[in-house]
């Protein structure tokens, strides 16, 4: 046996660095595209000069005021939000799939989205202001996970299975409560607002939404990136993780806490957007394999790219916004079916 013996089984990808380059350049290209495209005609030159105008005010001299403001106040924060939210879904979906040892779970496994949906619906029913809707969505998203997590602690056996079950139960509970609120809502006024929120959209994003979103999501992404190799070990199950010197319960608690904060932050501004957290990790595994050292960064980049693409389609194709949740579902399902068919590496 010699270490220099050629591998009998060539790596799946002949040029892994090309794959890597494409994955990480994709969100950059799509971010640029998101700034260039929109319902209002603005030339690429005007977009570029508008972007630089805060630093060089004379550059924007001959650009229509509306165009400059649209780029800086509408397109830029919205593209940033799509980037952050997509990255968040990619990262949390991957992390949840790892710690639940289950490639079929997504960011909503512990009911965070359902809880957030209920919080948003409640705030839409009680108040009208956007910040209250976001605050309620965020708080109830956390509450749902808290209930699922501590509910599962009531049972001694097989914590992972009980946690999954609790997540499903709490999610269903909040979905029922959402249905109740929709029933109570004024059909002319609150009901469409609730329905639209539940379908997911970045229409109302402004700069004021960005700082909190960025802090939570970037913080969460950094944390998950730092521990990403440990996700490999957690995905083997508690017994093996323990025998390899980890404290799986505490590690999973940190991952759940972090992923929940990120998902709640994302969902509280975007509304319910499904499938991204489920589909993106599969795409990532197909491209770079299951090792979370490479998979997590790839999922983050792919999630950001996917969400930028979806949001650009949602806001440019028709005069009316296409709900993001509808788009991600319509595209996510066929993509997932395709990936599952192509994927022969286990997962």
């Amino acid at each position: 046996m010699t270490h220099s013996a050629p591998s009998t089984d060539a790596p799946k990808h002949k040029h892994p660095w090309i794959t890597g380059l494409v994955i990480y350049i994709l969100p950059v290209i799509l971010f640029g595209l998101a700034l260039l495209l929109g319902r209002y005609p603005i030339t690429p030159g005007e977009v570029g000069r508008s972007l630089l105008s805060p630093f060089f005010p004379n550059l924007a001299a001959d650009i229509p005021e509306v165009a400059q403001q649209l780029v800086l106040r509408i397109r830029l924060p919205r593209a940033l939000a799509a980037l952050l939210i997509g990255a968040s879904f990619g990262a949390t979906g991957t992390a949840f799939q790892a710690i639940f040892k289950n490639p079929l779970v997504d960011s909503n496994i512990l009911g965070v989205t359902s809880g957030a949906g209920f919080g948003a619906a409640l705030a839409l029913l009680l108040f009208r202001d956007a910040w209250q809707v976001q605050l309620f969505a965020f708080a109830f998203g956390l509450l749902a996970v808290f209930l699922a997590f501590f509910g599962s602690r009531l049972y001694k056996s097989s914590p992972l299975l009980v946690l999954t079950l609790m997540g499903i139960l709490i999610g269903s509970l909040f979905n029922s409560l959402i249905a109740l609120l929709k029933y109570l809502a004024d059909p002319l006024d609150t009901l469409p607002a609730i329905t639209f929120w539940l379908l997911g959209s970045l229409t109302t994003i402004t700069w004021t939404d960005i700082p909190a979103l960025a802090v939570i999501i970037i913080g969460g992404v950094v944390f998950l990136l730092l521990i990403r190799w440990r996700l490999n070990i957690l995905s083997l199950g508690d017994a093996e993780a323990k025998s390899l010197g980890m404290d799986p319960a505490r590690s999973k608690l940190w991952v759940i806490l972090c992923a929940t904060l990120m998902t709640a932050a994302a969902v509280s501004v975007s509304g319910v957007i499904g499938w991204v957290g489920l589909v993106i990790p599969h795409a990532g595994r197909l491209l770079v394999g299951p090792d979370h050292k490479r998979l997590l960064p790839a999922s983050i980049a792919l999630g950001a790219a996917f969400m930028l693409l979806m949001d650009t389609v949602a806001r440019t194709v028709l005069p009316g916004e296409i709900p993001l949740g509808v788009l991600t579902g319509l595209l996510g399902v066929p993509i997932l079916i395709l990936l599952l068919r192509r994927n022969r590496m286990g997962w």
């Binding site: 490999n232 995905s235 083997l236 199950g237 323990k242 025998s243 390899l244 010197g245 299951p290 286990g346």
Partner: peptide, 27 residues
Amino acid sequence: FSAAERAREVGLIPQMHTPVFGFTVRE
């Protein structure tokens, strides 16, 4: 012993099961 100290001395190979994700042998 801390968990890591213990794992540096004692290893446990549980009953064989197939992990969900297809890590490579080296991973």
